[in-house]
Amino acid sequence: MEWPATSGDYIVGDANSSVAVVTLASDYTAWGLKNYAICGTCFTENFGIEKVIVNVLANPNINCLVVCGQESAHLAGQSLLSLAENGVSTMAGSRKIAGSNSPLPYLNEIPMTAISRFLREIKIIDLVGNKDPAAVQKEIDSCTGSKRSEAHIISMPEIDENSWKKYEKLVKQNVMSKIKKV
């Protein structure tokens, strides 16, 4: 299978590198980073994180994910860190990132086996909010580890401007529960 496995806003560096970099809402193209396998943005706490998981797992050389840059309005960085720390909870057939403060922190488009493997095999480096290319490069260069046993290939459905609508009912429930508390 061709790598990266799914589309997105990223650039591919050295596919043999053990590091992936997510710059959240920051423009990675101006940072001049090097020595990474893949570097790109992640704006959303659901489809965006799922695409990161798919692409990271599809390259068995990657064992470290540096999460840095300006946080998005959807708190994708905070959600990634919550995922790493707390995992997901399953309720009403949905997988919600436990502890996420995002509006729609649901990872329903990829299998639970992929999420579990990501949590087990990938080290997350927290540089959320850090936009200093030198500091980010230092973390990239310090990431070491052995190649993972094998690539974990999963498919990712195509995402478009209407994909979020599957969560419309959950959004309404969340809004109503917040109104009732006031």
Rank of each mutant, 00 (worst) to 15 (best):
S89D: 12
I97M: 06
V22K: 00
A37W: 01
H74K: 11
D141I: 02
A15V: 14
G32C: 04
L81S: 02
E158L: 12
G48Y: 04
K166H: 10
A25K: 14
I115W: 02
K166A: 09
S149H: 00
R117M: 09
Y10K: 10
D141S: 11
N162I: 08
K178S: 13
G13Y: 01
A135P: 00
V136M: 02
N35K: 14
T41Y: 02
G93H: 02
W164H: 10
T23C: 03
V12I: 12
I110Q: 05
A15N: 06
E50N: 10
V88C: 12
S102D: 03
K172T: 12
E45C: 15
K131D: 11
I125V: 14
E158T: 12
Y106P: 05
A5T: 06
Q137Y: 03
V128Q: 10
V52M: 06
S7T: 14
R120E: 15
E71Q: 13
V66E: 06
L80I: 15
C143Q: 05
T144L: 07
P60G: 03
W3Y: 07
F47G: 03
T113K: 10
T44H: 13
A5M: 10
S177G: 03
Q70M: 12
I115H: 01
S177Q: 15
E158G: 08
S72E: 04
E139F: 02
N61S: 14
G99K: 05
V128S: 08
K34L: 00
L127P: 00
T113R: 08
I38Q: 03
T90R: 12
D126N: 15
M156C: 08
D14N: 15
S7C: 05
K138C: 00
S26T: 15
I97K: 04
N55T: 05
C68S: 13
N174V: 00
I140L: 03
E158M: 11
Q78V: 07
T44Q: 10
S26K: 08
Y10M: 03
E2K: 14
L24I: 01
K123V: 10
G69W: 04
